[in-house]
Design a protein around this nucleic acid. Structure first.
Length: 742
RNA sequence: GCGCGCUUAGCUCAGUGGUAGAGCGUCUCGUUUACACCGAGAAGGCCGGGGGUUCAAUCCCCUCAGCGCGCACCA
């Protein structure tokens, strides 16, 4: 009789932690430890995934669980196929994101980041992320991820910081980074500037004010910016204003009178409003663009709103009593006041209160973005974007590298569209938590010196008052270099062995933030594509297809699910029915279904093993199927069953290799339950009870043979239960299932 | 404004140029010693509307509608 007792029903809680420990102790997560044998056709091939490093500022969510499930399926499959397989885990310091999380914590404690010295603030967040990182790592383990912990990297490891700064320096030397005084998306709450990607647009109902403006009437939603106006613009073809173009006009702006030029620009739509627009280059991005084109005609931008989104007027209108009234008012308060003042003076022509338009908001706090003129470091994107387009369209010319492929393909279009219309990237952030920009400025002559080392003396004017830029990089600037930096570029063995990596698997929501930029900077630094495939998964939503969010209270904690139903069930629930790029509806019913499936596997295995006799067990110890079969004569029907199974195996292999995990998982689920259990086992029952020894042997052989095959196929999807059952199979010199041949 | 996606059984979704599929749910039956986290069976769909290509369309093309989403410097 078989020498094991399976619990009934299957108890994942007793199995999962134990199995993960065994894997980890075995060392098989590292490519060195599962070194494929010679003679294996795949033994020289590598399969590499760099794990998108989760933010070390909280717990894992279902999106992480999906990412881990997908990547672990690939990794386990290719490991079992004899590839040299590396899955490199990491953790992200996640600059701005983490600082915001930490600031919220400070707020609860009644503290504020601006009261804390920079170094102390950094230290505190460091400790905070280290604690979170540990927690996160244990959560990743709970989900069964077979990643190589010995190679884990953190985005603030010393070498990563240093090499990120090197990239900045190289870009600067190549003329791809410049210091630009430009209009930047500024969040008054978070007190930092952003790139174009960190703002969102939302439609809003606002009033459109028609203001008498010298000889014009201009329409604006932001009358409070009138103090900073630099010009008035019309369309060059607009007959109404033709003879005013180029003239200077005088405008009453309550706190004083402004002398402004009338300029012509073709972006002005003569049908909108009155066809005349007041131009405020310091506080509006359109107006800024117009200023860029008409610098010689327009007077310099005047900033009348400060970084707290409050009025800052008096310095521009020192003699005006009215200006004092406005000083320090918040933008909306100032708007109310200026409307009143304009009305008092009879300067308000009319107010259209039904105006719908899009406003820019901070993606994090959803407060209004206040565009500000600021000096920041910008990356010139066009040349980088060009190579990134080529890498997907034609492949890189260097070293005949193939094209990067998208799964699903439709994201290619979105990718191209973004890259073709790309604008320069502001990488300066006015926060503390991140990699310091290696740039120094002479406080005397304002010269910038780019250097990782401290600069003592200005090379231009000889002054000794030099200060380092207080800003840090946009996190995505370092993240964009992650694949090659995490592998120890440029001379590590890992980099040489595993780069370019095979698959980049991540959410489509960070296609621009991360994926596109990894391709750009990867090619720029290494001359190679960073990965061959991009697999983009969708959002995990709740059972009603609602976005999960804390405020809605519909967030599902993956660890809670693991505790109750097991990691294997969770993985199946995340994979099945989830085509790449599509959002997934996640429900408790679904997980329950796959928990039941786990039990089904358990029970069927129990049955097969209880019915395998000693002879069969001895035979099963041989490694080759033909040896295993030995002298057993199979019936025609049994041979057919085995053939069917071989065909299924091939089909599933093909599905996995073409990234159709949702199909592969469903296929094996269906086969195991409704063919193996419902048909094969059922038809074997009378034979196992029968008197015909030969027929019995044939039946026993087929059952065991298909079971072991199913466990292998199932293993990438449901690694815990399959490994546990595998350990009970009667096999001699058995390896762990994780490194068995698929 | 530009672009993308979706519309198939009550729900969530697969799918293929040749008379419709899964899971969950529903209904009926069943306590056969692997499993009630089970088994046997059933009901349930003009595959969003219209047009076209084709011997044949849920699948290809056009168009309309509804929903969702991305990008975007129109005051």
């Amino acid at each position: 009789m078989v020498n094991f007792q399976f619990d009934k029903p299957y108890n994942h809680q007793e199995v999962e932690d134990k199995i993960y420990k065994l894997w980890e102790e075995s060392g098989y997560f590292a490519p060195e430890a599962h070194q494929p044998e010679a003679g294996n056709p795949n033994s020289k091939k590598t399969f590499t995934i760099i794990m998108p490093p989760p933010n070390a500022n909280g717990s894992l969510h279902l999106g992480h669980a999906l990412m881990l499930a997908l990547e672990d399926i690939m990794i386990r499959y290719y490991r079992m196929r004899g590839f040299k397989t590396l899955w490199l885990p990491g953790a992200d310091h996640a600059g701005f994101e983490t600082q915001v999380v930490y600031e919220k914590k400070l707020e609860k404690e009644g503290r504020n980041r601006f009261e804390i010295p920079r170094e102390q603030f950094y230290e505190e967040i460091w400790d905070f992320t280290q604690a979170n990182k540990k927690n996160m790592e244990s959560q990743i383990r709970r989900l069964g991820a077979s990643c190589d912990w010995s190679r884990e990297k953190f985005t603030l490891d010393e070498d990563i910081i240093s090499k990120t700064q090197d990239t900045f320096i190289k870009l600067y030397k190549d003329g791809l980074i410049y210091r630009g005084n430009r209009l930047v998306h500024w969040c008054p709450k978070h007190q930092t500037g952003f790139s174009d990607l960190e703002i969102i647009h939302e439609e809003k109902l606002d009033a459109l004010y028609y203001i008498k403006y010298g000889p014009f009437v201009v329409a604006t939603v932001r009358p409070e910016t009138i103090f900073g106006d630099s010009a008035v613009a019309v369309n060059p073809k607009d007959k109404r204003y033709k003879n005013l173009i180029g003239k200077e006009i005088e405008v009453d702006v309550v706190v004083g009178k402004l002398k402004l030029k009338v300029i012509a620009d073709s972006v002005i739509d003569s049908k909108f409003g009155t066809g005349a627009v007041k131009i405020t280059p310091a506080h509006d991005s359109n107006d800024y663009e117009i200023w860029q084109r008409h610098k010689k005609e327009i007077k310099e931008p005047v900033e009348v709103i400060n970084k707290y989104a409050k009025m800052d007027l008096v310095r521009h209108f020192p003699r005006s009593e009215e200006a004092k009234k406005y000083e320090g008012l918040k933008v909306l308060e100032a708007r109310k006041l200026i409307v009143e003042d304009l009305e008092k003076r009879g300067l308000m022509e009319k107010i259209d209160s039904t105006y719908r338009h899009n406003v820019a908001l901070c993606y994090k706090c959803k407060n209004m973005i206040e565009p500000r003129l600021m000096s920041q470091w910008f990356v010139k994107m066009e040349p980088l974007a060009k190579s990134a387009i080529e890498a997907v369209k034609k492949g890189l010319p260097a070293g005949r590298q193939g094209k990067i492929k998208f799964i699903p393909e439709r994201f290619k279009k979105v990718y191209f569209h973004w890259l073709k219309n790309i604008r320069d990237w502001n990488i300066s952030r006015q926060i503390v938590w991140g990699i310091r920009i290696p740039a120094w400025q002479c406080q005397n002559c304002e010269e910038w010196i780019i250097s990782k080392e401290k600069i003592e003396k200005c090379p231009k004017c000889g002054n000794f008052k030099i200060e380092q830029d207080k800003d840090v990089f946009d996190t995505w600037f370092s993240s964009s270099q992650w694949p090659f930096l995490a592998l120890g570029w440029p001379d590590s063995k890992d980099y040489k062995t595993f780069y370019p990596t095979t698959v980049m698997e991540t959410g489509w929501d960070i296609l621009f933030f991360w994926v596109a930029r990894m391709i750009m900077l990867g090619i720029y630094k290494t001359k190679k594509i960073p990965f061959k495939y991009i697999y983009l998964h969708g959002l995990v939503r709740d059972e009603f297809k609602q976005k999960m969010s804390k405020s809605k209270g519909n967030v599902v904690d993956p660890l809670g699910v693991v505790n109750e139903y097991g990691a294997d069930a969770l993985r199946m629930a995340l994979i099945i029915g989830n085509a790449p790029g599509n959002d997934l509806a996640f429900s408790e019913d679904k997980i329950r279904g796959y928990r039941n499936f786990a039990n089904k596997i358990w029970q069927a295995s129990r049955f097969v093993l209880m019915n395998a006799n000693r002879a069969e067990q001895r035979a099963a110890q041989k490694s080759e199927p033909r040896q295993r079969r030995g002298k057993i004569k199979l019936t025609a029907r049994d041979r057919k069953r085995l053939k069917e199974f071989e065909a299924l195996k091939k089909k599933i292999a093909k599905q996995i290799e073409s990234f159709k995990f949702y199909l592969a998982a469903e296929e094996i689920y269906h086969y195991f339950w409704h063919t193996f259990c419902d048909k094969i086992i059922e038809e074997m029952k009378p034979r196992l009870q029968g008197k015909d020894e030969k027929d019995k042997q044939s039946a026993q052989f087929v059952l065991l043979e298909i079971l072991r095959g199913c466990l292998k196929i199932l293993h990438p999807f449901m690694p815990f239960i399959t490994e546990e059952i595998w350990s009970a199979l009667p096999l001699k010199d058995k390896k762990m299932l994780i490194i068995e041949k698929w």
